[in-house]
């Protein structure tokens, strides 16, 4: 039973991740935010297990947002920028997807996130 929050300012990017998540039976709730402010509100309200987030976004960048998100959420960054990778891995993220990515790459990242969740529960 997983809750996933998608944070991206592009509708198409959010819809794509939603589509990819739709084939995963263990994902029960998907929330969407188009900026950091909305993401923070949804994260605090629903406590998602996994957060897939972009970096270049209005109001607050993905890196800045990651610093304020609940520590029990596992992060997957999905961005066209490769220069934030080191910073992202220092912020509790399990993977860093470079756009555009294929389906398999996304599912590998998602599996890593689930493993991290399992590790943190055990």
């Amino acid at each position: 039973m997983l809750k996933v929050l998608i944070v991206d300012d592009e509708v198409l990017a959010r819809e794509t991740i939603k589509l990819l998540l739709s084939s995963l039976t263990d994902v029960t709730h998907v929330y969407e935010a188009q900026n950091g402010e909305q993401a923070l509100a949804l994260a605090n309200q629903h406590q998602p297990n996994i957060i897939v987030l972009d970096i270049e976004m209005p109001v607050m960048s993905g890196i800045e947002l990651a610093k304020h998100l609940p520590k029990n959420s596992v992060l997957i960054f999905a961005t066209a920028y490769n220069q934030y990778a080191v910073e992202a891995f220092n912020l509790n993220s399990v993977d860093y997807l470079l756009k555009p990515f294929d389906d398999d790459r996304f599912y590998v990242a998602f599996e890593r996130a689930k493993m991290r969740l399992r590790d943190s529960c055990s």
């Binding site: 198409l12 990017a13 819809e15 794509t16 589509l19 066209a80 756009k99 555009p100």
Partner: peptide
């Protein structure tokens, strides 16, 4: 360029 390629990939997926 990468964002556009991602957008195109999204359009194909959708």
């Amino acid at each position: 360029l990468f964002n556009v390629l991602n957008t195109i990939a999204s359009l194909v997926r959708l």
